[in-house]
Structure formats: structure tokens, C-alpha cells
């Protein structure tokens, strides 16, 4: 008959766990979700809206995405108009005051990042898809992630004060790993000869990556951001690649590959296809490491001839 008191004790011990409400975080992009998981650990549930394989500019605003937004305590967005084509109607339809723009449950990662590619002067659509606030693809640089991690940990602590210390500690640890990783890779690429550190990108989405790794973007395959490659422009890119011995064309998996492959073949180089976002079940740093390794392998490869 001593079983019952024991069971009761067990229940009493379990009760606080069951009663503890997890912080519900929704991130627009898989990279942001991966970062939030590093900070939150087991104390948060994190949902990413965009699949890693999809171009974050063009995600379908499927109504099932409204459900996690409706229940979210915190919405993390990339910002700089990256999600402008699909997030706003979902945010309105979510009927959740906490995650509306400007609220405590709305975190715009771009607000704490050092921005690159901020257009000077008037922005005109004839220039292509220009983001007036600057290039939004900063999540490809672990150094850009550092201020995001710090600010996000503060915000999560504010929404969930009981776990604030844990979030801060996790963030500090993650920040150390980000900094060390960024430095190691930067030094690794710096050891390459300068001529090998010139690359061609498909879309102007890699400038933060190149800035981190000390690479020089000689040209983009698209003549202007978001405008499909034209024969005249591609011919110009090819002659530049041949003249300067540029042998890598870098692009995300969600862009068309034919033009890049042709260019790389004719220039005696190769295409480096990067995964779009952190794949499901992969950590943010592992994702960036895969990118750095693929790039390094292509740039350090011996001459094709």
C-alpha cells in the first residue's frame, strides 16, 4: 500500500513539467528557426514557415501556415522585405495580436544586423529586384548571426522570464562557437591565392557569404537581381571568367542551374550549389560548414586542363 504515496510523489514531481508552457516560436526561414533552437533548447517549440528547399522570396502563403502563427508567442522574421511577398497576409489572418509588426512577439532580425548592399540614391524597379533597405541574405554570414543571437536571447527572456538565464547562457555559448567558426573559416580561405578567391554568383544573394570568406564577386549570372540571364550578359560573364581565370559559379539550389553549368563548363570551372536554408534536423553551424567546405573544395581544386 506504499505504492499510492509513491505514485503521488512521482506525480507531484512531474506536475511542474506538465504545467510548464513552452515558448512557441515561429521563424519565417529555416536558418532563423535553427538559431532559435540553439538559444531555446528544449524550452521552446520552433516552427519554420518556409521549407529549406524553397526560395525565401517566393514561398506560397498556404493557409496551414496561419495555424502556427495563430498560436505563436514570438515570430522571427528576416526582414528587409525578403518575406514581403508572402508573410503579410498570413500575419493578418493569424488573428494574433502578439506577433503583429511592432509587438513584443515580433522580432525582425535585420534590425540588429550590419547591412550590406544598401542602394545609394533612388531605387527604381528597372534596376531589378532591389531591396531598398539593403541586401537581405545576411544569414549566410555567422558574424551577422551574432548580434541576432544576442538580441533574440534578450527577447525570448523577456517573453519567458523563467528561462531568461538559460537563454542568455545558451546564447553566450552559441556566440563563442559562431565567432570561432567564423574566424577559422576566414583564415582558411585567406590562405588561398588571391586569383582563386574571385567567383561568379548567380543572384546577388551571396554578398554576406563572400564578405565573410574574403571572396570577390566578379559578376552575377543575372544581369540585374531577379532578371533572367540574357545571352549578351552571359557572354560578357564568360569572357570575364576566361580572362581572369575565375572558375567557380556559386548559386543556391533553388535557382535555375543550366546557365551556370554552361558557364562553368566553358570556363573550365565548376558550379557550387549551396543548399537554400538549414535542412530539417541540421544545426545552423553544420549548415554553414557544409557551404564553406563545398566552396573551398571548388576554389582549391587543381586546374581542369
Amino acid at each position: 500500500m506504499r505504492l499510492i504515496p509513491r505514485l503521488l510523489t512521482l506525480l507531484a514531481l512531474l506536475a511542474p513539467c506538465a504545467a510548464h508552457a513552452e515558448l512557441k516560436v515561429v521563424a519565417t526561414l529555416p536558418d532563423l528557426a535553427a538559431i532559435a533552437r540553439e538559444i531555446g533548447g528544449p524550452h521552446v517549440t520552433v516552427t519554420a514557415l518556409a521549407p529549406p528547399s524553397q526560395d525565401p522570396h517566393y514561398v506560397d502563403p498556404r493557409p496551414n501556415l496561419i495555424l502556427p502563427l495563430n498560436r505563436a508567442d514570438l515570430l522571427i522574421v528576416n526582414g528587409l522585405e525578403l518575406e514581403v511577398g508572402w508573410l503579410p497576409p498570413l500575419q493578418v489572418a493569424a488573428r494574433n495580436g502578439r506577433i503583429q509588426t511592432g509587438g513584443d512577439g515580433y522580432f525582425d532580425a535585420s534590425s540588429v544586423v550590419r547591412r550590406l548592399g544598401v542602394p545609394q540614391g533612388k531605387v527604381d524597379r528597372a534596376m531589378g529586384d532591389i531591396h531598398p533597405g539593403g541586401n537581405p541574405h545576411f544569414l549566410l554570414d555567422p558574424r551577422a548571426a551574432r548580434p541576432i543571437v544576442a538580441a533574440l536571447a534578450t527577447r525570448m527572456g523577456k517573453l519567458d522570464p523563467k528561462q531568461a538565464d538559460r537563454y542568455r547562457a545558451n546564447a553566450a555559448d552559441f556566440d563563442r562557437r559562431l565567432a570561432a567558426f567564423a574566424d577559422t573559416q576566414r583564415a582558411r580561405f585567406a590562405a588561398l591565392p588571391a586569383a582563386r578567391r574571385r567567383v561568379v554568383a548567380y543572384h546577388a544573394s551571396l554578398i554576406y557569404l563572400f564578405d565573410w570568406l574574403g571572396l570577390d564577386e566578379a559578376e552575377t549570372v543575372e544581369p540585374r537581381p531577379g532578371i533572367a540571364p540574357t545571352p549578351a550578359h552571359v557572354a560578357r560573364v564568360l569572357s570575364l571568367m576566361k580572362k581572369d581565370g575565375i572558375r567557380a559559379v556559386v548559386q543556391e539550389a533553388y535557382y535555375p542551374k543550366k546557365t551556370s553549368e554552361t558557364l562553368a563548363r566553358l570556363a573550365g570551372g565548376q558550379v557550387v550549389v549551396l543548399p537554400g536554408g538549414t535542412p530539417d534536423g541540421t544545426a545552423y553551424l553544420a549548415h554553414l560548414e557544409g557551404i564553406a567546405d563545398a566552396l573551398y573544395a571548388a576554389l582549391a581544386a587543381p586546374e581542369a586542363e
Binding site: 540588429v112 550590419r114 547591412r115 533597405g133 539593403g134 548580434p147 538580441a151 527577447r155
Partner: peptide, 13 residues
């Protein structure tokens, strides 16, 4: 949650 003081941040969009 004011962002940290901007160093080289671009002007507000």
C-alpha cells in the same frame, strides 16, 4: 529591446 547602438548600420529604411 532597442537594437544595439548602430555602428555602420545603414540609414533607416
Amino acid at each position: 529591446d532597442a537594437p544595439p547602438a548602430p555602428h555602420t548600420h545603414a540609414g533607416p529604411v
